[in-house]
Each structure stands twice: as structure tokens, then as C-alpha cells.
Nucleic acid binder design. Structure first.
Lengths: 321, 321
DNA sequence: AGACTCGCCGGAAACGTTTACAACTAGCTA
DNA sequence: TAGCTAGTTGTAAACGTTTCCGGCGAGTCT
């Protein structure tokens, strides 16, 4: 920039103004433009950031950036972030509380303009770090009501209820549920949703618990088949559902004739299976998009008070039920 | 930092030194540490970057951050990048040449310390932008030999050959191939690999072309079944393979008895299907890891001359063949 | 013709760090 | 005791921008 200004025979102030389109006389504009062209000037993003106190970077932190649900969220977030001329920084936290709170604390360094985080387990340390954060944070997932942090959530409890109702109306009675760990936020919500819906229909519950993974779904389904085969299985996410489907097919169980299957999250996996798996959409893409929008709006106006967006679940019926 | 120094009664230089562990007398260290503690000082990442001329950010640019292959790469890259204390910025380019070259040009702004890019189509503009880039670039995928840019690649031509040989040795003769667009780098390589392998075995080729997507695979397989059913199908990636499998199962074709199926990329999809799909691993994770390592080494020593790493393909035989 | 406005310009401060340099002290050696 | 070394400290420059502010000239109004 110094050299551009020198070459154009103007001050660096004028050069800066011209390069940012902030006026200038026609001659100076021409001179500076030409000088910049000949020396191949490109502004330095860091210096600009230092001055403007913005990095135009948005962080997204999740347990595993390979999980289809998060991939879908990330895609949606990336799209709105990119559209706003910003860029996305991704963090894989491995679901470790320490990592996540460390990340939240690092926001104080202002290395990004804000963060979208979807903690799978929510501790007091999380909440403390979030409300203390000097940079805006948006949480995807449940959050205690009193916490004043932007939040987009879905209602997986009624999501499960949709699945149960659907199966019951199809005449199923022995509806089992394969859940993820109960000490996680989604695991706990799904558990209570399932129990309540079953109680409402006067049915007995049957629950298997494992990780939110394919392999866990396969194993859990095998267990279910081993003792008093159910006539329907609800899975806490699509990975589990695909695993369960695998076990059912291997065992020669017909889906949906013998056992109906309903997944959750409605990721591509559900569409790509055979038979295609019915799944409760929790609007991953919509939640990602909303979260990004909330964050951008808050960055623009930090005085906004905390908002809470709800994306309603929706049952997508396919061949498996 | 000013306030910390003032509170501790030392100069900001001393404060900075203490906070970075660059010596200082025991008393000053104590005073500064305490002052920093009481005011809750956190260093500003941008200012530090301006001084050090590093952002500790690495960019990863691909067509679609939701594609399982790229997800796997991204995971691997994120892991080594995070381990080095840096962070990952992701870009979804939509495969558009303009977007990608724009991204490469933006490297001049030094908003990241380097970029890993995997262009699906490679133009002269790409190459020009890469060699002209002031920040290090690593390319995942084919690259003309003379281009002096760090590069990690696989050999999908012999990858296809592995699949063909395997199917031939299993007695298959009418081996069809479902490919992606021929004007893409991977599409072209796979095409020539398939043709050559078939020629070598004295077999006639049969090729369907579509996108590198599930739906394209489904449609292509339907076409193949419609006219002179093959006894084996090779797919240019796992998404296509899963789509093809779907079409086969819907048509009542037994896999692998009637038609054998081999995918490519060996993503989780292949393991999660039923039957599990044989797939040619192109080492996505390994390529991502290598690319990240190359980039980090080059950042440390920019004088290094361009290196070229090759990850050999490997056939993983499962139930579908 | 004088007062006023407006647009353009350059000097300089600012953003928040790190670090080269010089000055100083204390401890040691010859 | 003079001289040297090692360690510590503060001043100030540097990183590369943007922007505030005052000055200046040209045009407009009375």
C-alpha cells in the first residue's frame, strides 16, 4: 500500500480511500487504480481485521464433522455464511466438555466473529462459558430456559411421538426403541419422549441403549430379535436405523411386513437405503440455516436480546413402515 | 495489554515478554501474571497475527463438503490441522472454476496460511493461480507433471483395473461401468482405466455416464438392466454404487449372484449397505492426512521443492462381488 | 467581495501485539 | 578496581491497514 501510494504520488490515506471506493477525484482514482494494478496490490486481510475488529470468520463446533446430521447442518451454515461474504471455521470437539469449553473461552481472543455450537452434552461449564463469551454464540440444541443465549432447537420429544403414533395407527403394538447414551441432551429427550408416547397409548416400552452409531444400531437390533421380537423399531437417529435395518435383513426379517422401522434426522442415508427408511425429520438443514442467520443478525446488532427458534419435527414416511 | 502493564507497573514490552514466557525477573513475572489474572487479559489473535504474519488457519476447498469422500478427507485434515494448533476453514466451491480460482487468488490476502484444494475440473486458470499463489497450496488429485505444486494423488486407473481383474477372476464377462462426467479429472481417469483394463482382458466395454451422485447411479443401473443385463457393474464412486444397488434390488436382481457390484472410494456407505458393497479404496483419509502434512511442512519451510505423494488404491472385497 | 459550504487531500493516530535496540544493573573475572 | 558478561528493562518501531482531523482550493450565496 505504501508502494502503491508512492507510485501514484499520493498519500497512503488517499490510496486507501480510493481502493475502498470512498471518493477521491477522478485523477487520483485513476492514478491509484493504475498503480495498484501495476504492482499487483492486494490488501492484507489481517491488517484490515485489526483495524475493523472483524475477522469475517464464523466458527462451527460439533462433536464429529463426519456425522451425517452435522454434515447437513454444516452445509446449510456454510452456504449462508459464504453468502454473507464470510467464511466457516470448523471444529471437531470429539464431544469432550473440556475441548468445547476451551473453544468457547478462545472466543475471547476474537479469532472469529462468532460461533455456532451444538454440544451433545451440556454442562454448567458450557453455559458459564457461553454467557461469559465476549463474542456472540448460537447454540443448536436444548438449553435451559433462563440462559440468555441465541438458540435454535427442535422438539425431538414430539418427534418421537410422531413416530409412535404413526406406528400405532399402522397396528403395531410391540414398539421398541434404540436410543443413544442417556447422558446426552438428545438421548435424554428422546428417552422421555418415547416413554411418554408409549404410556399415552398404554403400551409397554422396550429400550436398547448404545452409541449414536451404525454399529450400535446393528448390535441393538440383534439383541431385540433375540428375545421377543418387536413388530416395530424406532431409532434415535438414521445411523442407528441403518445398522438396525442391516441386522433385520441379515436375520431374514421382512421390513416392513414383520418389523417396521423408523429412523430419525431424515438424512440422505434414509433415502439411500433399501427399503427406504421412514424417518422423523428434525430439520437439520433448517436449524443450521436459522442458527447462521441468528448469528449474523446478532453480529450486526449485538444489543438484540436472546432469541429462541423452534424447528418443528416432521415425519417422513417411506417404505420401511 | 496496556492496562495489564499499567496495573503491574511495568512497560508493555515486559508484560508481553512475561505473557509469552520470554524471561523476565521473578518479581515482574509474578506482578504481570497477577495483573493479567485480575483484568482477565486474553491476547488478541488478530494483532498477534499481524505481527507474526501467520493466521494459523488452513483452508480446505472442495466442490461439496457433504460428499462422503470429502467428508472423510476433511475429517482427516481437521485432525492433523487441529493437532498442530491450527484451525480449518472450509469452502464449498460447487465445482465452479470461477469460484475456485477466486479462492486461490484470495490467498494473496493472507487470510489463511495455506490451502488444500481438490478441484474436480482442472483448468489452466487453476494452475496459473496455484503457481502464482504467494501462500502454499497443496492439490489433492491429478496435476500435470510439470506443475511445481505439492500434490497428493491416487491412481484411480489401476484402481479400476483392480476391480475389473477381481470381477474377471470371479468369472464375470459382461462388466459394465457407471461413470461420472468425463470432463472431470476423476471421470476421465476412471474412463481410461476401465477401457484399458477391459481391452487387456479382451472384453467389450459398456459405459453409462451421469453425475457422481446416488440418483444418477440408480437411473444408470435401470438403463443397464433394460438392455442386455450385465453380470457385473463397476461404479465410479460409492454414491453411484448405492444408487445402482437400489435399482438392482428393486428389479429383483440378486447381488452378487446375478450381478456383482463394485464401488469406489470405500466410504462408510459401502460398509453400511446390505449387501455390503465391495469398493476400491482410494485412501481418502490417507490422502487428506498426507496433504495436510505436506502443507504444514511447506509452511514451516517454504523453500522445500514441490513434492508428489501417491496413495495406492486397494480393493476391499465385501458381499457384493 | 466576503462568508460559507463542499470535496479532496495529507499527516498522524489508531487497532493490539511483538521485538530490535540501547541502557542499565549485578555479578564475576583478571 | 576496571572490564566483561548475562540478565532485565523501557523506548520505540514495526506489522498493514483505516479513519479522524485540519487545511486548502473551488464554487455558491448574499
Amino acid at each position: 500500500m505504501h508502494t502503491v501510494a508512492a507510485l501514484a504520488g499520493v498519500s497512503i490515506a488517499s490510496a486507501s480511500r480510493v481502493l475502498n471506493g470512498h471518493g477521491g477525484s477522478p485523477e487520483t482514482v485513476a492514478k491509484v487504480r493504475e498503480a495498484a494494478e501495476t504492482v499487483g496490490y492486494v490488501p492484507n486481510a489481517i491488517a484490515r481485521s485489526l483495524q475493523s475488529q472483524r475477522t469475517d470468520l464464523i466458527a462451527f463446533a460439533v462433536e464429529d464433522i463426519g456425522n451425517p446430521v452435522y454434515v447437513e447442518m454444516m452445509r446449510a451454515i456454510e452456504s449462508v455464511v459464504a453468502e454473507s461474504g464470510r467464511q466457516l471455521v470448523v471444529h471437531a470437539t470429539g464431544g469432550q466438555v473440556g475441548q468445547e469449553t476451551a473453544l468457547l473461552k478462545r472466543l475471547a481472543h476474537r479469532y472469529v466473529d462468532g460461533m455456532i455450537i451444538s454440544p451433545i452434552r451440556l454442562t454448567d461449564a458450557h453455559v458459564a462459558a457461553m454467557v461469559a463469551s465476549p463474542a456472540p454464540v448460537v447454540v443448536i440444541g436444548q438449553l435451559p430456559d433462563e440462559v440468555q443465549v441465541d438458540n435454535v432447537r427442535t422438539d425431538s420429544r414430539t418427534g418421537i411421538a410422531l413416530a409412535v403414533d404413526h406406528l400405532v395407527s399402522g397396528g403395531r403394538k410391540r414398539i421398541a426403541f434404540i436410543n443413544g447414551p442417556l447422558d446426552t441432551v438428545p438421548g435424554a429427550a428422546r428417552d422421555s419422549g418415547y416413554r411418554e408416547a408409549m404410556r399415552r397409548h398404554g403400551l409397554e416400552h422396550r429400550i436398547e441403549v448404545g452409541e449414536f452409531q451404525y454399529e450400535a444400531g446393528r448390535v441393538a437390533a440383534e439383541r431385540l430379535l433375540g428375545s421377543g421380537q418387536p413388530d416395530a423399531i424406532i431409532c434415535a437417529n438414521d445411523l442407528i436405523a441403518v445398522g438396525a435395518l442391516h441386522a433385520l435383513l441379515v436375520a431374514g426379517v421382512r421390513v416392513p411386513q414383520d418389523v417396521a422401522l423408523v429412523g430419525m434426522d431424515d438424512t440422505e442415508l434414509a433415502r439411500m437405503s433399501y427399503p427406504q427408511i421412514s424417518s422423523v425429520s428434525l430439520g437439520s438443514a433448517a436449524r443450521g440455516r436459522l442458527a447462521a442467520q441468528l448469528l449474523l443478525e446478532r453480529i450486526k446488532d449485538p444489543a438484540l436480546k436472546a432469541r429462541r427458534e423452534l424447528v418443528p419435527p416432521q415425519l417422513v414416511v417411506r417404505e420401511s413402515s
